[in-house]
Design a protein around this nucleic acid. Structure first.
Length: 946
RNA sequence: GUGAAGAUAGCUCAAUGGGUAGAGCAACUGUCUGAUAAACAGUGUGUUUCGGGUUCAAGUCCCGUUCUUCUCGCCA
């Protein structure tokens, strides 16, 4: 039976069907390292136009999560696709290494800096810890197939980097943006440090909400203000009532603010004793209800303005505080009278300055009332709340107390409530040298993708407060300033001194600042100045990577502005902004030409992935089970502009799609087993028409893909490549050419023609998905016939041969029409099959009755039409009188066609499986058709079209 | 609570300046056994989150709603 099977050219390949990615990928990574792929790419691409995607540094702490993987894979896809598009695209990875999260981890191990260990020992431990974290994350990123300069990353803790951070600060000072202030800032008692806006998160907290009497001291003054009301209704005791959720700030109270434009009521309550309370008129009802007093009588009303400068008694200290006016007072909650502690609130501070109120801050850095604070010294503020309540009760100042659940700022690292605390801090001013305005201009000069990113960052920069860059911590770059002990002015030679300090830091790291020989630096002035011991906000570190890396590092040394920054959408508030601000402050222009953002990963319910929800996914674990290419394909397939949904079902679909792409590649390779392009490649104008179509169609798709790559629309690439594999290739072209490749003489032109097309297709295809399925592409690359470079990444998009106008007029449009007819024929064949009359299509014969146009169209294929339909016989007729059993179909061109299908009555050729009349006609080959005999014994058949 | 973005078949994505909602995958059914832990063929599927409005006509424009994500926030 297998007599003729050996005369066929069946597909053959060692390319494995089963991907086995988990095992193969690590081997490939080793090969990339061994061949020094990254270095060779830099060398080989020298002189090409440069494209720089500047890597935003992940924080060097903890294992990478899916979000990290998404970010790095997207960057990798872009860098690789740019490389294949003919750019020199260096990719220097970085890590953010200073900062509190690392300090906290190290504290757990060695104890607090300056207590159990010296600060320099502590810094050494931090450096060691960060190094380890970088190593861990780096191997995780490598495992994802990301190609980058892994051996030479930039670390913000490199001595050179640390020195350059200080230099960057110097540049910003030189440009006049530094500002020293003492306003209240977010303060974390656990950190013992100020926090930036970005380090604050709002969470629900239960606080005491209390109403407190501030008795009016000067009744005569009050009466003067209230001339229009009958004074006899006034009680002896009149109090302004404030409402607060932070009782612990009362010791620092310096006034009570009312809104000048609001109306206030003096109400008389009769209870245990008679008293009068002053409340905003609109809040009287809510307040008295809260106080549970029923018997009330409104004595009179007045504007808030009328109360200005009335003297009040502090509820428990022997202190007179004034009534002051402020527009920030609203009717949203409380009493309309606001307790004002300038040291503990931003509005309080601002309004306090107008009235020259004392900025009292009795709270130490650890959140404990300092020694000498009457009644509360030594108590932690949140614990002191109860004590304050007790004291208020004792002093009969407490009107009401309850619990309130409200949104309250928390430290993003400790997750503990933070406080406002007025301390001397360093700021980058947004306005003293027009930083805000200049940054706003630069935002307009920058491309934001998606577009709404611009509106987002504009609103942020427009409204943000000045940037508090000082931290009272240990592990970070120093604010290397000398401040005059008397004048509090920074040293006049600051810029010069900073450079000298930077040079020392470059040699010894940040410890150089603390071991500094101040005398040597300042000479006789040394005693007049103190050295600032605050460190810089870590956001400053990462914010100046544009200065430290771009324009300095090899590969990007002549390149001051990055083409692209690519981060999660949260970085509008983070790195995009810190980079923008520092860059504008230093140079006047932005550090990047375009900012591209991706969304966050969410689970199948659309909820974000987080540790606490337990719905997170470990990318490394995924790589080691399903393979990094599956993960990469998911990243590419997902429209990252919105949320990126990850679920088991999605992953399953992705794995299915992967198998389809892989298998298509495998089949293409299998048909090239005996093909050597040097010897067998058929010139494009000598190819069979259908093969030329296949090349043209592939070329057309490549153009679409190149555009999608340059627009960073990877999900389109996924869709198009997949559809190409399943549609154009699987269900049409590859199915049709089987007959030619399998049954025609090995070296026949028509067979080599098909192989030539397959060769062009796989050459193109392997490049298309190399940026995404890097491991698989590399694997295919090795199986491709012909001379090969070491890696697919040394090549650019495939250069197709110029396709001449088809001599038979069979262009893309032509074949699209044929395919449409093929589809309707297939439907009829399916009906025949369902009826049990045929099995395979080759068992069928087809008769088509059509109008002149379609007839001419199909007739151009002559007898080869049957190969396009994969049927044994196809006959064409001018419509006339179609038989009754013929199915009538209207094509999209409005042309009509009648289709009659039937099972063939002929014998099946053992070799080509067609059912032909001439099977058995030749006595020497009783089971073969004439075509097969010609193909094995004769010169072989001729094919022109399909 | 603010601002922004999104919500279209089970999944991933489409749908030019408003004109009968489309692909692929999955599912199901069948075929083949010369891509075989494959391949081919055929078959459905949607109150386009929901509710209004404008219009001859709305996934598309307007108003509102719900949910999600990012973001902001002195409830003192």
């Amino acid at each position: 039976m297998a007599e003729y099977k050996h005369t066929l050219n069946l597909p053959k390949t060692k390319f494995p069907m089963k991907a086995n990615l988990a095992q193969r990928e690590p081997e490939q990574i080793k090969k990339w390292e061994a061949m020094k792929l990254y270095d060779k790419l830099r060398e080989g691409n020298k002189g090409k136009p440069v494209f720089v995607l500047h890597d935003g540094p992940p924080y060097a702490n903890g294992d990478i999560h899916l979000g990290h993987a998404v970010n790095k894979i997207l960057k990798d896809i872009i860098v690789k696709s740019k490389t294949m598009a003919g750019f020199d695209a260096p990719y220097i990875p970085g890590w953010d290494c200073h900062g509190l999260p690392i300090e906290l981890q190290v504290e757990k191990k060695v104890g607090k800096a300056g207590k159990k260990v010296s600060t320099s020992e502590f810094r050494a431990a931090c450096r060691k810890y960060a190094t380890k974290q970088v190593d861990g994350q780096r191997s995780n990123f490598k495992r994802l197939g990301v190609i980058s300069d892994w051996d030479h990353p930039y670390l913000t803790m490199d001595f050179k980097f640390e020195a350059d951070i200080v230099r960057a600060l110097g540049k910003i000072i030189e440009n006049g943006h530094l500002h020293k202030g003492a306003k209240p800032v977010h303060w974390c008692a656990d950190c013992g440090s100020s926090l930036a806006e970005a380090e604050v998160e709002y969470e629900d907290k239960s606080s005491p909400a209390i109403d407190v009497r501030f008795a009016i001291l000067d009744m005569e003054a009050l009466k003067t203000r209230l001339e229009h009301i009958d004074h006899k209704h006034l009680c002896d005791d009149v109090s302004v009532v404030i409402w607060t959720t932070t009782p612990w700030t009362l010791p620092a109270n310096q006034g009570v603010a009312v809104n000048p434009g609001l109306e206030y009521s003096i109400i008389k309550c009769s209870g245990a004793g008679e008293e009068c309370l002053i409340l905003a008129s609109d809040l009287v009802e809510a307040c008295t209800k809260r106080y549970e007093v029923n018997d009330i009588h409104v004595v009179g009303t007045c504007s808030g303005e009328a109360l200005e400068n009335l003297k009040l008694k502090h509820p428990f200290y022997d202190r007179e505080v004034p009534v002051i006016l402020g527009d920030h007072v609203t009717l949203e909650a409380g009493t309309g009278c606001v307790h004002t502690a300038p040291g503990h609130g931003q509005d309080d501070f601002i309004v306090g300055q107008k009235y020259h109120l004392k900025v009292d801050n009795p709270v130490g850095p650890n959140g404990v009332f300092v020694e000498g604070t009457p009644l509360f010294a030594g108590k932690h503020v949140f614990k002191a709340n109860d004590d304050v309540l007790e004291v208020l009760r004792t002093n009969n100042a407490l009107v009401h107390a309850e619990k309130l659940l409200h949104s309250y700022p928390h430290c993003w690292r400790h997750n503990t409530p933070i406080i406002f605390r007025a301390t001397p801090q360093w700021f980058i001013s947004m306005d003293q040298k027009n930083l805000r305005a200049d940054a706003m201009k630069q935002i307009k000069e920058t491309t934001w993708l998606p577009e709404w990113g611009q509106a987002r960052i504009e609103s942020m920069v427009e409204g943000r407060p000045e940037w508090c860059i000082s931290r009272q911590r240990t592990w970070g770059a120093p604010i290397a300033l000398f401040v005059h002990k008397q004048t509090e002015e920074i040293h006049p030679r600051t810029i010069e001194l900073i450079e000298q300090v930077a040079q020392q830091i470059e040699q010894k790291g940040i410890d150089a600042w603390y071991e500094l020989d101040v005398k040597a630096l300042l000479g006789d002035e040394a005693d007049d100045y103190y050295q600032v011991k605050d460190i810089l906000d870590v956001w400053f570190d990462s914010g100046v990577t544009h200065y430290v890396v771009m324009n300095q590092r090899e590969g990007v040394e002549d390149y001051p502005v990055a083409d692209l920054y690519l981060e999660g959408s949260d970085q509008h508030r983070g790195w995009f902004q810190s980079s923008l601000l520092t860059s504008v402050a230093m140079t006047g222009t932005n550090a990047y030409k375009a900012a591209l953002t991706h969304g966050f990963t969410v689970d199948e319910k659309g909820h974000k992935m987080s540790k606490s929800r337990g719905n997170g996914v470990e990318p490394t674990k995924l790589s080691n089970t399903l393979g990094a290419d599956i993960l990469r394909l998911w990243v590419a397939a997902t429209d990252y502009r919105g949320e990126m949904t990850f679920s088991n079902e999605i992953l399953k679909r992705i794995a299915d799609a992967y198998r389809r792409i892989r298998n298509t590649s495998r089949y293409l390779l299998a048909n090239l087993d005996d093909f050597d392009p040097e010897i067998h490649k058929v010139a494009i104008d000598k190819m069979v028409s259908l093969d030329r179509w296949a090349v043209a169609r592939t070329h057309q798709l490549q153009q679409e893909l190149e555009e999608a790559y340059s627009n960073y629309e990877f999900h389109k690439i996924y869709q198009k490549v997949h559809n190409f594999c399943a549609g154009d290739m699987g269900s049409f072209y590859l199915d049709v050419i089987k007959d030619r490749i399998y049954t025609m003489p090995t070296d026949s032109q028509a067979r080599r023609s098909a192989q030539t097309a397959v060769f062009h297709i796989v050459e193109a295809m392997v490049r298309w998905f190399a940026p995404v399925l890097s491991f698989t592409a590399e694997e295919i690359w090795k199986f491709l016939p012909g001379e090969r470079t070491e890696s697919v990444f040394f090549s650019e998009w495939y250069a197709f041969p110029d396709i001449p106008k088809d001599e038979y007029g069979m262009d893309l449009d032509y074949w699209n029409q044929v395919i449409e007819v093929r589809d309707v024929v297939n439907k009829e064949l399916e009906a025949l099959r369902t009826a049990g009359e045929i099995g395979a299509n080759l068992q069928a014969e087809v008769e088509l009755y059509c109008g002149r146009e379609i007839f001419d169209l199909l007739n151009r294929l002559e007898d080869e039409l049957r190969f396009v339909f994969i049927t044994s016989t196809t006959k064409l007729y001018i419509a006339g009188e179609p038989p009754k059993e013929a199915q009538h179909v209207t094509l999209s061109s409005n042309d009509e066609i009648w289709i009659a299908v039937s099972a063939s009555e002929h014998q099946k050729c053992e070799r080509c499986w067609h059912y032909r009349e001439d099977v058995g006609a030749n006595a020497q080959h009783e089971t073969l058709c004439g075509r097969c005999i010609e193909n094995i014994d004769g010169d072989g058949e001729t094919r022109l079209y399909a």
